[in-house]
């Protein structure tokens, strides 16, 4: 269905009169996040040509979602830009999440939202980046957000803002970690539950539960069990070895 819509929109664009008008990107293009539950909620993924805000507290999973989307985009041969206005991007972690570093451009502007917005606008106007992630230390000013919204629409790039509010975002998601359930021992497993809620968008109010597993590429010998076997078990590992404790 999506493909049919896309073809129809392209055909319409091709036959639209008035060649001087700036070409608008087809709205139906989506960037899948790689999280099936969320992609289903968003009808396929994050929309391109939109300013998207991802809200969440520290350690809520915002960066994981951005990495997952960037990984899908870079694997599809698209370019991704990461505006690291917090200076906290760790490329090995991105590589572990599947991001092709060869297709990831990193910009570290001064740690202000305005500088990051300026960088994002330059990147969006280049019209070659499928995804531009703005990792902000604070909220975007209203005017800068409005400019970014226009730039995203004109360029057809998805501008994903994490770490700060974006006033004019077309899609706003809230992400939160699920509270650990220590009594069931879930915190000891290498799984993590996240909850993504659509605050603004076509499916406002809908929510998706996402479970993250341990990265496939991590080695397995560094575990409490291994530590215990090596005789250097931490108190946590010792506690786990005795379920009744």
């Amino acid at each position: 269905m999506q493909a049919t819509k896309l073809e129809f929109a392209r055909a319409l664009e091709r036959f639209t009169l008035g060649g001087d008008a700036p070409k608008r990107p087809v709205e139906a293009e989506l960037l899948p996040t790689g999280w099936p539950e969320l992609d289903e909620l968003l009808s396929g993924g994050l929309p391109r040509g939109r300013l998207i805000e991802l809200r969440g507290v520290a350690s809520s999973g915002k960066t994981a979602l951005a990495f997952a989307t960037a990984a899908r985009a870079s694997a599809a041969g698209q370019l991704v830009a990461w505006i690291d206005a917090t200076g906290e991007l760790h490329p090995p972690s991105a590589a572990q999440a599947g991001v092709e570093l060869a297709r990831l451009l990193v910009v570290r502007p001064p740690r202000t939202p305005l500088a990051a917005a300026r960088a994002a606008e330059i990147l969006a106007r280049a019209r070659i980046f499928a995804l531009v992630v703005l990792d902000l230390p604070a909220a975007l000013p209203d005017r800068a957000a409005a400019r970014l919204r226009i730039a995203a629409r004109d360029a057809g790039a998805a501008l994903l803002v994490i770490g700060g509010e974006a006033p004019h975002a077309a899609l706003r998601l809230a992400i939160a970690p699920q509270a650990p359930q220590a009594e069931r021992g879930e915190h000891e497993t290498d799984r993590r539950g996240l909850s993504v809620t659509v605050l603004k968008g076509s499916a406002t109010g809908a929510r998706a539960e996402v479970t993250l597993g341990r990265p496939a590429l991590t080695r397995t010998f560094h575990s409490p069990e291994a530590l215990q076997a090596l005789g250097v078990a931490s108190p946590t590992a010792a506690a786990r070895a005795e379920p009744g404790a």
Binding site: P92, S93, R192, R214, H222
Partner: peptide, 12 residues
């Protein structure tokens, strides 16, 4: 991997 945490999630 030795320089990364084991838990799922992206390291900042």
């Amino acid at each position: 991997a030795p320089t990364l945490p084991l838990s799922p999630g992206a390291l900042r």
